[in-house]
Write a protein that binds this DNA or RNA. Structure first.
Lengths: 101, 101
DNA sequence: CGTGTAAGGAATTCTGACACG
DNA sequence: CGTGTAAGGAATTCTGACACG
């Protein structure tokens, strides 16, 4: 695992880095948009990747998105990505599988 | 600044990552071998680079080095590096400056 | 010299709840 | 729905000191 994915950042640094409040950060977690790890004592630990994710979420909210919208869109995207993967696999298996157009 | 150099890691994670005690980590700082940043409240914050540095220091201590030895050696190394830099600059200024051999 | 430990305090983070719009 | 806030507690980290070898 690389530096970007290692969950080592505490709440204080996260609020500094993102400009968000603790409340916001915890709420986005409650809604399943970020998944920090926990220390034995229960403190949240985030990765740099999580920090970027939080900023992305906050930006979309400012743009008028709702949290449900964000989750919805991403669910669909990952579904499409799965479809593309399967299509790719079929493609190499049978060189005749029809792709779009 | 990249992820590796950003000082965002608290003491707890540092001891987890290095296997060192808080005492050791603070002592190496006292001796000038690592230079964490501080939060407003006074908590130390380390980078991934610092973490690797701490492991390196601890390893050398296990190998019988003394902290002063470690600092001494590095002082000399950086002096040599400075010499090399200056030699390089002179080299490009006067293509005749004698390099070793 | 390098490290352990007990002591007491200050800073940090957590949860659950009430509030607002 | 997304966020602020006051409340109380638990976990975290800090400093200075004494101890050992």
């Amino acid at each position: 695992m690389d530096y970007k994915s290692k969950k080592v950042i505490g709440m204080g640094v996260v609020t500094d880095l993102t400009g968000l409040s603790e409340r916001q950060v915890r709420y986005y977690e409650e809604k399943g948009l970020v998944l920090p790890e926990r220390t034995k004592g229960g403190s949240r630990k985030y990765s740099f990747h999580d920090v970027e994710r939080l900023i992305e979420v906050a930006t979309k909210l400012e743009d008028g998105w709702r949290i449900q919208d964000i989750k919805e869109r991403e669910r669909r995207l990952s579904t499409k990505q799965r479809d593309d993967m399967i299509r790719g696999q079929l493609n190499s298996a049978f060189r005749t599988f029809p792709t779009k157009k």
